[in-house]
């Protein structure tokens, strides 16, 4: 039993959970700077969460047990997903619990329950959010799988750990198919995390809501758990995109210096990706809902092209 490995794995999970609000705060802060606004301090999301945790829960009389269980389930599934991503080190024992297909399955499971919770009360908004969410995810989920399959076929493994390790240890090589996969994964990440141009996390304008419409009836600690889970999901996507395509800096051995370097590079990479996201959100406008399938099918087609390009051109 690899005790230090397990401790590190738990530490990584805890770190990701704790850092997740900071990434959201950072993105919001950078976005505000782009828009010439003063903006809240980057650690504002912690205050918001603390406030929500303190508040009383008001629940609709019509709510079923499923509605009450969903925040806990969504949160715990997202936490488990965060434990299998290689964030600052490879070779952690939790990484083999599940491979990348299982991780996509985790997100799908969380979404499944979130949609059901949205439909539970029988309000128009909940159903609307659920319907839109499943529509969008029915395009993003396959696109995400395909872009990851391109990598999986190249590295002959679907374990995230093995993929990162392979890039780190093999001589550097540019695969054209990775560019397609990376582009597709970026689009998917934007859509899955409910960012502009697919969804706008900052608004409760009823006609455009997707994610917010599903969780409209939640309050207090339940809302806090759901908000935290969605921040964590965004962080996981950030880590995934960074470490699959730019894994350099990730610790190969579980030593203090290597881990410190890993942590530092992870922080820089995440700040960078947050900056890019904030910049893109500042220059793009939210899309009309019925235009989004076009963008998402583009993501799917790009991913498929990447995969076909890989099997036809890059396999010998």
């Amino acid at each position: 039993m690899n005790v230090s490995g397990w401790i590190l794995a738990l530490g990584q999970t805890a770190l990701l959970i704790l850092l997740a609000p900071l990434l959201s705060g950072w993105i919001k802060w950078v976005k505000c700077k782009f828009q010439n606004r003063r903006g809240p301090i980057p650690w504002q999301p912690y205050r918001d969460l603390a406030k929500l945790f303190r508040k009383e829960v008001v629940m609709a009389q019509q709510a079923s047990p499923l509605f009450r269980a969903t925040p806990y389930l969504v949160f715990s599934v997202t936490v488990l997903a965060s434990s299998i991503v290689p964030a600052f080190a490879v070779g952690l024992p939790t990484a083999v619990i599940a491979d990348v297909i299982v991780m996509v399955g985790f997100f799908a499971l969380a979404r499944f329950f979130l949609c059901l919770a949205g439909m539970d009360l029988g309000t128009a908004f909940g159903g609307m959010g659920a319907s839109r969410e499943v529509t969008i995810s029915s395009l993003t989920e396959p696109a995400m799988l395909l872009s990851i399959f391109t990598l999986a076929m190249t590295f002959t493994s679907t374990n995230l750990d093995a993929m990162v390790l392979h890039t780190l240890t093999q001589p550097f090589q540019i695969y054209p198919s990775f560019i397609f996969a990376g582009m597709s994964l970026l689009l998917v990440g934007v859509a899955e995390c409910g960012r502009i141009p697919i969804d706008n996390p900052a608004t409760h304008l009823e006609l455009t809501m997707i994610h917010e419409a599903m969780i409209l009836e939640y309050s207090g600690r339940h809302l806090a758990l759901l908000e935290w889970a969605s921040m964590l999901k965004m962080l996981i996507f950030g880590v995934l995109i960074c470490n699959l395509f730019l894994p350099w800096g990730t610790a190969l051995h579980l030593e203090p210096t290597a881990i410190a370097v890993g942590l530092l590079t992870l922080g820089i990479k995440l700040m960078g990706i947050g900056f890019v996201l904030a910049a893109s959100e500042s220059v793009l406008a939210k899309m009309r809902l019925f235009r989004t399938p076009e963008l998402l099918s583009l993501a799917f087609i790009i991913a498929l092209l990447g995969m076909l390009g890989h099997v036809i051109l890059e396999v010998h």
Binding site: A108, M119, L145, L304
Partner: peptide, 30 residues
């Protein structure tokens, strides 16, 4: 085979959408 993997991925996502609908409409709501 690559195209088959793509369609299996699409099928899985659509199946989830379909059964969210079934359970949500039949058992949840009013």
């Amino acid at each position: 085979i690559a195209v088959a993997a793509a369609s299996l991925a699409l099928t899985g996502a659509l199946a989830a959408a379909c059964f969210v609908k079934v359970f949500g409409i039949a058992f949840l709501g009013q």
